[in-house]
Design a protein around this nucleic acid. Structure first.
Lengths: 276, 276
DNA sequence: AGAAGGACCAGTGGTCCGTA
DNA sequence: AGAAGGACCAGTGGTCCGTA
């Protein structure tokens, strides 16, 4: 029940404490059994690299941030509103006294297959989170269909809420939206994405710089496909569940205009085809 | 500028006063020129009957309900947020002193092709409104694509707002949502829909009764198609832009459950196949 | 009474900015 | 400084209920 003993274990995932319990969520008619992260549709998008967290993400302490401890009070209940199954109260329930607020380790630029060392998370892990979200969406869809309710086609607030209730507290909307275009690049051109990662790692760039650099190759891909970034997303099975990021949409639009005038080249940067 | 003189004209449409001006809205890159209602995609869904309002819907008074008079102050302006082009202020602008709050005439059950007499609107007119909404959506989509913005696939609040700004003040969300399933029945089984209308007219039923009666045949249609009411809507070009009404979804779900148990028949009513 | 629609409300998409 | 994410906010889907 003490926080400090866990530091050594948290090589990947939450900064100090990851999840709560092993969850019995997933409504009941969930995807197919087992905890959510083990049945993530690994290997569908971005094959090769496997995320190497066997079941690491399952310590036993609580965050003490917002009360709201999941699990442990489940009554196998169902029938409440939003696919949850815990009783939802008990403010700061069990043990830990002054447990600090926890965050995920920050991301660093890693090459494909590389495990981040120290209190860092690698990019394979980042992409793995997108696959987990996809799995949570599928579960939400399954439950919705069972109940004859509206069925989301995208990763919505409802899905994020479900993920959280399922114990995946390390998944949150701002983070996932922040890196969507990076994941898109990974899905649409794994070779190119891998090359970019290697280049940025080699040059010791930080995650922010890598993230920024993911825009340009996507715009180039869009250019080849008639600038229709929505169609590109909707066409790809792993991307179709994500909203097109505003900034990516704007970049594509701006570049289309520029291209229509006559010139090419996105703005200030280098050549056309990513060569860092 | 006086209200009363117009009563004789308003056989169809707004109770006393319909639209404002002839609009110069539609952003600029709109659908194809001319006022919105003249280029409505008439005849795509529900062919036969044509709505017989040549250009009737265009008187000259203002509602005086909310200020917000459209037109007359347009600067051919563009570039503001939401596809409007008027300056948006002037509280209760021009003439009419104590103009009463106006509403559309209530609907009555009419047979296909029948014009409602008196201060009433017929069902062909109702269905015509759905086609106008479709046209407004197409215009909104065109503008959004031009600007590289998110492009709605359904009739959203934004579309209703656009319709209002375009002068179609007689279109509003509660009304359109209220009768969506009636329009769906009309689109999916025009024969059946026509038969229902004739039956209800003959028996002197009111619109509410007719509206209620539109649910059952739709559930029957859904039953034949594996109960997937969402697929039925999304598959049909005129329906795909409308959200599936909650109650219709619930009825389909309830009936699917009932059917799964063994029996058939929706609830209390008559036989399986509508035979009023 | 039957019906049209202004206006409200819970929960959404989007992302800023106080936090660590 | 660079980064994670709680929490806010404008505008949404949905429809009730004061209005005529």
């Amino acid at each position: 029940e003490n926080a400090n003993t866990l530091d050594a274990l948290s090589q990947e995932g939450l900064s100090e404490e990851p999840v709560q319990q092993e969850i019995e969520a997933a409504g009941s008619g969930g995807g197919g059994g087992g905890g959510p992260w083990e049945l993530v549709a690994m290997g569908i998008c971005g094959g090769a690299v496997k995320p190497k967290h066997g079941g690491q993400r399952k310590s036993k302490k609580q965050l003490g941030v917002k009360g709201k401890i999941i699990g442990s009070s489940s009554q196998a209940g169902r029938g409440d509103d939003n696919y949850d199954n815990d009783s939802d109260d008990d403010e700061n329930g069990g043990g830990g006294g002054g447990v600090e607020r926890q965050r995920e380790h920050p991301f660093i630029v890693t090459e494909p297959g590389e495990v981040a060392r120290g209190k860092k998370n690698g990019l394979d892990y980042l992409f793995h989170l997108y696959e987990q979200c996809r799995d949570f969406l599928i579960q939400v869809q399954t439950i919705a269909k069972e109940r004859g309710e509206k069925c989301p086609t995208k990763v919505t607030n409802q899905v994020f809420r479900f993920a959280k209730k399922s114990g995946a507290s390390y998944i949150n909307k701002p983070k996932m939206r922040h890196y969507v275009h990076c994941y898109a690049f990974h899905c649409l051109d794994e070779e190119g994405s891998n090359a970019l990662r290697r280049g940025f790692k080699e040059r010791g760039e930080n995650v922010g710089a890598w993230r920024q650099a993911c825009y340009k190759p996507l715009v180039t891909i869009a250019a080849r496909q008639g600038w229709d970034i929505d169609a590109i997303f909707n066409t790809h099975p792993c991307l179709s569940i994500w909203y097109v990021p505003t900034k990516l949409r704007q970049l594509c639009h701006a570049e289309r205009r520029a291209a229509a005038v006559g010139s090419t080249s996105v703005g200030g940067g280098g050549g056309g085809n990513l060569q860092f």
